[in-house]
Design a protein around this nucleic acid. Structure first.
Lengths: 273, 273
DNA sequence: AGGCAGAGTTGAACATAATCGAACACCAGT
DNA sequence: ACTGGTGTTCGATTATGTTCAACTCTGCCT
């Protein structure tokens, strides 16, 4: 195989899988890992892929798939689990505000696509994810935050405040009964707060490690949150405190997800018959 | 077998397989590799194939079914060349409007990063590309067009019209003296037109295949365009017509790009010394 | 939390293999 | 003898593989 041909195929694989390992490519193309690294370096130089430790990801969709970076990888299993549970809570919702962060991105990936669904978000990653599928997406607009690729600033806040939504699904850097839902970046917090202004129901999705954390900016107190979806690793005491503040907490487990998946599959089969 | 006959068959093989090795051809035609190289060199000179290390590929690279990435790869070499030339025209520019399309994405990839640069764009891809680097990016906002991931609609138009820019760099689906810069989607055209409203200089980047094309929506007549950057494959007659309308046309060639690269390298070496 | 060890990954440097093109020799047909 | 095509040789270039010290990540231990 020609070198150029291989490079093209490597790019094809990266684009297909969103993220791929050097070792896998080396095995599949029957060349040394060093060669793959050189190919990837070249593709990166030309801006086609993004190099990561041990592999590469597509440039645009950096956060789409597990393996993109350490943060996305972290608790990916839990996040997917949570995202799947949360997706079931939004059946029938017509308009949604989606926040930012890897958990929300997982949610966006697992959201069943419906043509009549309208989504507004300040996250470029979420917008890209849903925009390529059959969902009407509105992106906030405004200044793009460098590391997270989220829209921030006055015009972003103004944009998200214009829309009335049935449900908002947001992530959280910290989650506690005392300080509520907190974010690390106050500019992000401003925008999310704006998105929550005209929504009927707030769903927070956060893995267990976020419980008890307090980040700098409070987005919303738990009293205003309808449901928090998390996994079994969440601190039970904090859950109790949050629940006593009047906020429902749903703890997902692998079994319930599996059960639900089976049920959904059965429903689909019935539906298509 | 006659030499001309063999050359024809070589071309056939290249077209058939998209990419093929010199060694394979030499074996199949029972001639030395040197002869095949001479054949390929000749075919390349005449524009039929593209020579690569160890073989040759079709000029149109490959037809991938990878969605957006396939399109990005088409004429990628020309687009990179054009993008690199255009990047040199924007040295010192402080604020820029960037349009949509793969050529503009290439431009965004190859744009030298400067912290004092401000970019406004309706393209999620461009925003993602530059947002991860050290550039201040403003994304238009509004409805996200499904297949292209561009911001469209009234609020997107409104957003891009708010900013004053030194230079606008846009692509084109079609480019002709009669109909000017044209786009396929009128909603995209509306947004781009908005972005051009408050700019001092309009640069159009388009590979040669766009010359003479007319797409549905006219974005801007050539009279208002400052510079068009293209490659050597552009129709010379159309270039003449456009130039007589008062618009400068820069035709990039690999040599000038190579020369420039060498010059830049020399400058860097001198600079770092 | 934080430090540490070990496994895995990286890129530089060097070695090897494949490929390239220039130059020259050869051959057939004119 | 001239021309166009071809094969061969050889130094230069390019691609690839290997080794190794440095680095990164992860999980374990405190």
């Amino acid at each position: 195989m020609l070198a150029v041909e291989r490079r093209l195929k490597v790019l094809e694989r990266v684009a297909e899988d969103q993220a791929i390992e050097v070792s896998t490519l080396a095995r599949d193309f029957q060349v040394s890992e060093m060669t793959i690294r050189r190919d990837l370096r070249r593709l990166e130089r030309d801006g086609f892929v993004r190099r990561t430790y041990g592999g590469a990801t597509t440039h645009l969709v950096r956060t789409f798939e597990v393996g993109a970076n350490a943060r996305t990888l972290r608790h990916a299993k839990e996040k997917r689990l949570i995202a799947r549970c949360a997706a079931e809570l939004t059946v029938g919702v017509r308009s949604m505000f989606l926040g930012i962060g890897t958990t929300v991105e997982h949610f966006a990936r697992l959201l069943p696509v419906r043509e009549d669904l309208m989504v507004i978000t300040p996250s470029l990653a979420v917008a890209s994810l849903l925009g390529t599928r059959n969902v009407r997406v509105i992106i906030a607009g405004g200044l793009v935050r460098q590391d997270e690729l989220t829209c921030i600033g006055a015009s972003a806040v103004e944009a998200v405040r214009r829309y009335n939504t049935d449900t908002a699904v947001i992530g959280a850097a910290g989650l506690s009964a005392r300080r509520g839902v907190t974010e690390l970046d106050d500019r992000d917090a401003d925008v999310i707060r704006g998105g929550l202004e005209r929504t009927e129901r707030i769903i927070v999705i956060a893995d267990g490690t976020k419980f008890g954390n307090v980040a700098m900016s409070t987005v919303v107190p738990v009293e205003q949150v309808s449901v928090i979806v998390t996994d079994a690793s969440a601190d039970p005491d904090e859950i109790t405190r949050i629940e006593s503040a009047g906020c429902e907490v749903v703890v997902c487990s692998a079994e319930t997800a599996a059960t639900r998946a089976a049920r959904n599959a059965a429903r689909e089969i019935r539906g298509s018959a």
